[in-house]
Design a protein around this nucleic acid. Structure first.
Lengths: 133, 133
DNA sequence: ATTATAATCAGTAATGGTTATCATTATTGA
DNA sequence: TCAATAATGATAACCATTACTGATTATAAT
């Protein structure tokens, strides 16, 4: 069987994701980890991001376009994506678990979870738009 | 300004999406359109899928992994994705528009829509799993 | 401590989905 | 019918991600 070995690079990648809350792409994680390990490889970042996600220690986000993003917060929560600047932020609102049972009733299968992305314009971009009028 | 010209290929692509309800990938649309236009190019399919999506005549789906999918039904509705076979089906349930206002209250921006994907095991895959026990 | 092992690494090539380029063809309005 | 130009087919380029390689490192057994 395959036993997991400790790796400083993996630690750094996980720490990076726990520390920041902007849901970085693999490339952004790469840039961040490079400050500590100047010659870490991008492949290592991808390999460990996938490993950590498969282990359930981080989460993958597919926000509708562009590269995949990663989230160090594995608790179920919703995200808001600004159409203008593309930033992805957490929404401090309750997850509606009852939607799963409601959905299950009309699909003939077994539903265990759902993912929701909210779209709109963030506060910062609204402010900027106002100034340019 | 740029005026749209009619094209038989684009018609075929749109018809394909209106006719089927399995949310095909660009490649699947390509295969389908090729029956009518044997030497249509994959680039043409992509170009028109993007054009139609930008015009709001079809919708893009990002179901979490794998290539992008397209939906000829532009009315807001939810989708169910089977973790086992990967098929994407429509859910005939009401879209909870009030979630947008609820989400907006805790984000400081303007939210106009949300996208929800439900995950689980579809009826077909449940049946298969049962037979193999 | 020394060694055996297997996981992990850095570096790089390959892959797959998608987009851009360009010469040619098709559509449209005069 | 004809000129203007959008759209096409073919192909190359692009970008995010994955696979491969031989060298390195962490762990476990000696």
């Amino acid at each position: 069987m395959k036993t997991l070995k400790h790796s400083r690079q993996r630690d750094a990648i996980l720490n990076c994701l726990m520390a920041r809350h902007d849901h970085p792409t693999a490339d952004a994680v790469y840039a961040s980890v490079r400050e500590e390990f100047p010659n870490v490889s991008l492949g290592t970042v991808y390999r460990n991001l996938n490993l950590l996600a498969d282990l359930g220690e981080i989460r993958r986000l597919n926000c509708g376009s562009g590269p995949e993003r990663f989230d160090g917060d594995t608790r179920p929560h919703y995200h808001f994506i600004c159409r203008e600047c593309g930033q992805v932020t957490d929404l401090p609102m309750e997850v509606l678990e009852q939607m799963n049972t409601e959905a299950q009733e009309c699909c003939g299968g077994k539903i265990d979870s759902h993912i929701t992305y909210f779209y709109g314009i963030c506060g910062d971009c609204l402010d900027k738009a106002e100034k340019h009028l």
